[in-house]
Design a protein around this nucleic acid. Structure first.
Lengths: 186, 186
DNA sequence: CGCGTTGATGTCATCAGGTGACATCATCGT
DNA sequence: ACGATGATGTCACCTGATGACATCAACGCG
């Protein structure tokens, strides 16, 4: 429907990650990304709200999938098991390409602005999970705590997975992290 | 030592919070804040790294105090008790003026950019606590998990305290929140 | 086939956040 | 009295971000 090469958003995503890796986030100008993707800077901002968002627009999908898993979870599961089931659903999206995950993680950790964006995405997910738990009749505080604790467990496990020397499975890492939280609070 | 009214930083802090409350964060320009504080915009950026930081520069003090409390904690305490002791030390700073806390919290929650900044401050504190735990010989994963769980507990309790209708004590809220986490993972 | 619609993109103008370089000047120590 | 100090002002400039309007290939329809 357009006269230009299709897939501008994808090209912008790739270009951005590559440039952020090569010269760093701050040293990369939006014009650079756009140029590499064969569009103008104005077009970048039509696809992504800002310079950071280009690394995070998969988060909506993550939230959908985990909420769906939460709905589908058995009725008699414990609160923490519900959270675990919801978060497990994201592994299909995130746990596949570890090389890509490492690149992305490296870039994000190298820049506070990107880290901020990541944190608010996680917080958004946590709030959504807490809401889902409340819809299942779980109390307010318990829902918030479970969602927060669950995402914390996930974060710790994810980082271990990304940097693991051997072929760690993300699901295993998450399971072990959950077990350790239980030990910790025992 | 200057020819101008002293306390520019404090005036900027007050002016910023007031304006963010009155017209919102985005609608407030740095020039507005500076004007109300009787300085120029350039001076604002000499005191605060950016427009958001003006609400968060107490976080360094929080981190110091909580780390100090962590050092001072008894040697035989459990990991989670160590975190609890560290976080308890911040109550002296945050738990005093609830009216101010509510204003600040309202402003922050109303704006995603400010929320991002708050989250990274908390994450920084959590990382510092985890480091402190590791210096006490606690394992890597356990340290991270305990710090993350502890700050999560704190966040939930803090929000309850801020919005409580009656005269809730922040310390009590935190204690109860910790207890609930223990129940949750039991 | 010709034509109007559609939607993604380009172009241009403009603003606000943020920074570097240099000037200014009250206060302090000598 | 005078030079050092340090906070502030002034100016120039870059980049991120947004609104308004123009452009033009593909599509559907008569």
């Amino acid at each position: 429907m357009g006269r230009w090469e299709p897939g501008a958003a994808g090209r912008l995503r790739e270009a951005a990650l590559a440039l952020y890796l090569e010269r760093g986030f701050e040293q990369t100008m939006v014009a650079n990304i756009a140029e590499r993707a064969g569009v103008t800077a104005r077009t970048f901002f039509r696809h992504f709200a800002d310079k950071r968002e280009v690394l995070f627009d998969a988060s909506a999908e993550l939230e959908e999938k985990s909420l769906a898993a939460l709905e589908a979870a058995p009725a008699m599961a414990s609160t923490l098991d519900l959270v675990a089931a919801a978060l497990d659903a994201t592994v299909d999206i995130l746990g596949g390409d570890r090389v890509l995950a490492r690149k992305r993680h490296t870039v994000i950790m190298a820049n506070p602005d990107l880290r901020e964006r990541e944190l608010i995405k996680i917080a958004h997910m946590s709030a959504a999970l807490a809401d889902g738990l409340r819809r299942r009749g779980i109390g307010d505080t318990e829902a918030s705590l479970a969602a927060e604790a669950g995402t914390a467990v996930y974060r710790v496990a994810y980082e271990q997975w990304v940097y693991a020397a051997d072929d760690l499975d993300l699901r295993d890492a998450i399971r072990r992290s959950f077990a350790q939280l239980r030990t910790l609070t025992a």
